[in-house]
């Protein structure tokens, strides 16, 4: 069984050494050239992250970043994963992808939109294409759909349970490598079915939605009785808490200094058994410190797995390393809940 790769986000050439020396086996980044901004403003994103903060702005910077990573034998992937592109953008992006590969040495392209996938596959880039989680490949047949297009990897969406990841992995049986999220940036909805802009001026729709004034109506037209209304209000308060936890817990850290937010590190033993090729840390826009600490956590769990510990022991160790037993036990910060994740082992912790 080959070791799982750890895929880390990077947003500057200056972060490469830090991330590679801390164990990143693969890196991914974004690029938004100035001519894109001039054409489309900040309202139409080239990839899934805001142009400001999360992206490089020139091919020169991309080439430098890739050269630094390649010096350590680490591949770099470029995100071209907006949910949709129009016809004239496909021409622009095909040229950008060609330069990113031929001139900058990019090893893979993370793509969601089917039209762009087809365009790049027609250019002979199929094996370099990684299907983004934004494409919502939620079942084996969807993974095979992308496999039929000749892609080199499929990134499984966050909206899958651990057992579902296991079934897809078993049925795909390594025919196309699979990647799964393990840290940061949870989504309250299915990422590919969220058609909102996470612009800093308006923020995430799920966060807004949860705090807006809510009126609950019964389908029979009756207003909820007082006790029922109170129960519903308490329920939606818990829902707001859940969304807060998915969204980095208000950018807080654990008592041990570990950044909080959506997490699936205790699913890593299961992912190894499933044959998942790579585990992904989200958050290109995050600070270098947040990236570094997240990477160190994931690497530490992987190192513990490599000592030959039983899966259950790795899970307990991961929960201790996370440093927030109560939150782990509650499940509110979990990407995946299942027989190998912390809530099921609450009694043992």
């Amino acid at each position: 069984m080959s070791a799982m790769k750890v895929l880390a986000p990077v947003s500057s050439p200056d972060e490469v050494e830090m991330l590679v020396e801390s164990g990143a086996g693969e890196l991914y980044c974004g690029l938004v050239p100035p001519d894109w901004i001039r054409a489309y403003s900040g309202a139409v994103w080239l990839n899934r992250r805001s142009p400001a903060g999360a992206n490089l702005s020139s091919l020169d910077a991309l080439a430098l970043l890739v050269a630094r990573a390649h010096a350590h034998g680490v591949p770099v992937f470029l995100t071209l994963n907006a949910p949709v592109y129009i016809e004239q953008q496909l021409t622009y992006l095909a040229d950008l992808a060609r330069q990113a590969v031929a001139t900058c040495g990019i090893d893979g392209l993370i793509v969601s939109d089917t039209a762009l996938l087809l365009t790049l596959a027609d250019m002979g880039l199929g094996p370099r294409l990684h299907v983004s989680s934004v494409a919502s490949a939620l079942n084996t047949e969807a993974v095979r759909f992308y496999q039929d297009l000749g892609v080199g990897r499929v990134i499984l969406p966050r909206g899958l349970g651990l057992d579902e990841v296991g079934r897809i992995s078993a049925e795909v049986a390594g025919a196309v490598p699979l990647e799964a999220f393990v840290l940061y940036d949870g989504c309250a909805f299915e990422e590919g079915l969220c058609h909102t802009l996470h612009h800093h001026r308006v923020g995430a729709f799920c966060v807004d939605l949860a705090r807006w004034d809510a009126t609950v109506e019964r389908t029979d037209g009756e207003r909820p009785a007082p006790a029922e209304a109170a129960r519903l209000e308490a329920h939606f308060a818990r829902h707001r808490e859940w969304i807060w936890h998915l969204n980095a817990c208000g950018a807080t850290v654990s008592s041990g200094g570990m950044p909080l937010g959506a997490c699936g590190v205790c699913a890593m033993p299961a992912f190894r058994r499933f044959g998942i090729h790579a585990v992904k840390i989200a958050g290109r826009q995050a600070s270098p410190l947040r990236k570094l600490l997240g990477l160190k956590l994931v690497r530490a769990v992987l190192a513990h797995m490599e000592t030959g510990s039983a899966d259950e022991d790795v899970v307990r160790w991961a929960v201790r390393a996370r440093g927030m037993h109560e939150i782990c036990a509650s499940g509110v910060m979990c990407y995946y809940r299942g027989p190998f994740t912390a809530p099921r082992l609450e009694a043992d912790i």
Binding site: E164, V202, W212, W242, V332, G338
Partner: peptide, 29 residues
Amino acid sequence: AADQFHVGAACRRECLQYTVTRRADPLPV
């Protein structure tokens, strides 16, 4: 509480019982 808000959580088809109307705060746009 420990089994809420995840993809595997069981439901009792509460969607058949309730509709929520959310009213947005004023937005910067």
